[in-house]
């Protein structure tokens, strides 16, 4: 990694730990990016604002949800045109009723990403303007990207087709 990027990383870490003495849990190195920030979901909205307004990460590229069985991870990837690099923001949520504040107020592009994460990984985004099914049919009661959801060969399933 370049020296300037490492410098920026150290700078970011210092500023964030000063700004969020409790919620900011650390900045891990992550190859090819400025690193991965671990944060407490309680400070989500303030952190997003800080990251966007102060540190100029104005483009939210991806929101991913990962099911680690005993916990759920929600991962935001943001990009800065100023620093020319990605930054990952990761929060660990409990497996029971995982929820986090929505990022749509900060990055409007989070809208569909969060809808998708909500229906596939079952992470609720509080105060989301339009939390309904995006990819799956309305009213689908499973969350396919959870580890507990198993795939089957079609022969193992009974297919009942009802003409409507």
């Amino acid at each position: 990694m370049e020296a300037s990027a490492r410098l920026f990383q150290r700078d970011l870490m210092g500023k964030l730990s000063k700004r969020f003495p409790t919620g900011f849990l650390g900045l891990d190195p992550f190859p090819g990016t400025f690193g991965r920030i671990r944060f407490d979901p309680a400070i989500a909205l303030e952190l997003f604002r800080e990251i966007r307004d102060v540190h100029a990460f104005e483009h939210l590229a991806m929101v991913a949800g990962i099911d680690w069985v005993e916990r759920r991870e929600v991962l935001y990837t943001v990009w800065s045109d100023v620093h020319r690099g990605y930054l990952l923001l990761s929060a660990m949520l409990p497996a029971e009723r995982p929820h986090i504040e929505t990022a749509t107020t900060v990055w409007p592009s989070a809208n569909w990403h969060e809808r998708e994460t909500w229906e596939l990984v079952d992470i609720t985004f509080d105060h989301h303007p339009d939390l309904r099914n995006l990819l799956l049919p309305t009213g689908y009661q499973f969350h396919p990207l959870l580890r507990s959801f198993k795939l089957h060969e079609p022969e193992e399933l009974e297919v009942k087709v009802r003409h409507v």
Binding site: M62, A64, T77, S109, N111, W112, H113
Partner: peptide, 26 residues
């Protein structure tokens, strides 16, 4: 973007794909 998590098996633990059109359409 692709986010690939490898937990040491021959299968990826999680693959997350981000499509540009996804946000462009949103």
């Amino acid at each position: 973007l692709a986010y690939v998590v490898n937990e040491g098996g021959e299968h990826p633990y999680r693959v997350k794909l981000k499509s540009p059109i996804f946000t462009n359409l949103s």
